[in-house]
Amino acid sequence: MTNVSETTESTPAVAENKPSIIVDHVRKDFLLRKSHSFKEAFIGWIRGKEVKAKKFQALDDVSFIINEGESVAIMGYNGSGKSTMLKLISGVLEPDAGKILIRGRLAGLIEVGAGFHPELSGRENVYLNAAILGMQKEEIDKRFDDIVAFSEIEAFIDQEVKHYSSGMFMRLAFSVAIHTELDILLVDEILSVGDAPFKEKCRAKIRELAGQGKTMVIVSHDQRMMKELCDRGIVIKKGKQVYDGPVADAIEVMQQK
């Protein structure tokens, strides 16, 4: 992932709006090993047998630009490559070809509890994750009470997070991310965990951030939420980008065989 200020003449240009995210001819491959388990692979290695691997192309020549203030849904069924795309944008993964350029501070909610240290308390993890997202200790001190209040887990904030449920992970991770000085928010199915009132509170917060001109990129199977929060949809099928346009039309394209 590269800062967008490093873009060259060959990078797609936007005439009117400033881009927050440029995805330029991106390809991502994974190796699928045919051994059924790590144990089998290890035994094969001990015996000098080659472990066969097959290349799987998760994304193939994907290009798009997301401008400042846009709310965009990346759509596709399981295995389509949409979550891989979000991880590439976040910097969790690196592309095998092409490039991704980012302008602004990015907060990614890619996996529930990712970045949390299981042996640390919720309080300690707030400071750890906020620091990873670029906040100074003084900033975290000022926002700590708001972060905990939004998460609604005050009673458990000093408990080690290895004892948290996935819902508690989600609440705290989401709360930390939205209380940072972010420019871009990436959300991958994070709102699928938790009860209905908290989900609605999260949706309201995302709407509020969008109203402030933040850039949103959302992966979700919740079509109602995508229509509500996003104006634009990018559809990926079997690693190929097949549509980029109005979100309602994108949903129809995704549903086509």
Score class of each variant (00 low, 15 high):
Val4Ala: 15
Ser5Thr: 09
Glu6Trp: 02
Glu6Leu: 12
Thr7Tyr: 00
Thr8Asp: 03
Thr8Phe: 04
Pro12Asp: 03
Ala13Leu: 09
Glu16Pro: 00
Glu16Ile: 09
Glu16Gln: 00
Pro19Asn: 00
Pro19Met: 05
Ser20Tyr: 02
Ser20His: 03
Ile21Val: 03
Ile21Thr: 00
Ile22Arg: 01
Asp24Asn: 09
Asp29Met: 07
Ser35Trp: 06
His36Asn: 15
Ser37Glu: 11
Ile46Thr: 12
Arg47Cys: 12
Lys49Leu: 11
Lys49Phe: 11
Glu50Asn: 09
Val51Leu: 12
Lys54Thr: 14
Ala58Leu: 09
Ala58His: 05
Leu59Phe: 01
Asp60Cys: 10
Val62Arg: 00
Ser63Trp: 02
Ser63Ile: 10
Ile65Ser: 01
Ile66Leu: 11
Asn67Cys: 15
Glu68Ser: 12
Gly69Ser: 06
Ala73Arg: 09
Tyr77His: 14
Asn78Gly: 04
Asn78Cys: 04
Gly79Lys: 11
Lys82Tyr: 02
Lys82Glu: 05
Thr84Arg: 15
Leu88Arg: 00
Ile89Leu: 08
Leu93Asn: 09
Pro95Gly: 08
Gly98Gln: 00
Lys99His: 14
Ile102Arg: 01
Ile102Gln: 04
Gly104Tyr: 04
Gly104Ala: 08
Arg105Leu: 04
Leu109Asp: 03
Ile110His: 03
Val112Ala: 10
Ala114Pro: 04
Ala114Ser: 09
Gly115Met: 11
Phe116Tyr: 02
Gly122Glu: 05
Gly122Tyr: 00
Arg123Phe: 06
Glu124Ser: 10
Ala130Phe: 09
Ala130Val: 01
Ala131Gly: 10
Ile132Cys: 05
Met135Asp: 03
Lys137Thr: 10
Lys137Met: 06
Glu138Asp: 15
Glu139Asn: 01
Ile140Leu: 13
Ile140Asp: 08
Arg143Thr: 01
Phe144Val: 11
Asp145Lys: 15
Asp146Phe: 15
Phe150Thr: 07
Ser151Asn: 06
Glu152Trp: 00
Ile153Arg: 05
Ala155His: 14
Ala155Val: 08
Ala155Ser: 14
Ile157Asn: 12
Asp158Thr: 01
Gln159Thr: 15
His163Arg: 15
His163Asn: 14
Tyr164Val: 09
Tyr164His: 11
Tyr164Asp: 06
Ser166Gln: 09
Phe169Glu: 00
Phe169His: 07
Met170His: 04
Arg171Phe: 04
Leu172Asp: 00
Phe174Lys: 01
Thr180Asp: 13
Asp188His: 14
Leu191Cys: 13
Val193Ala: 06
Asp195Asn: 14
Asp195Pro: 12
Ala196His: 10
Ala196Gly: 09
Arg203Trp: 05
Lys205Asn: 03
Ile206Cys: 01
Ala210Val: 08
Ala210Pro: 04
Gly211Tyr: 04
Val217Gly: 06
Arg224Ala: 14
Met225Cys: 12
Met225Tyr: 15
Glu228Thr: 10
Leu229Pro: 01
Cys230Arg: 07
Gly233Pro: 13
Val242Cys: 09
Tyr243Arg: 08
Val247Ile: 14
Ala248Ser: 13
Ala248Thr: 12
Ala248Lys: 12
Ala250Gln: 07
Ala250Ser: 05
Ala250Cys: 12
Ile251Thr: 08
Gln255Arg: 12
Gln256Trp: 10
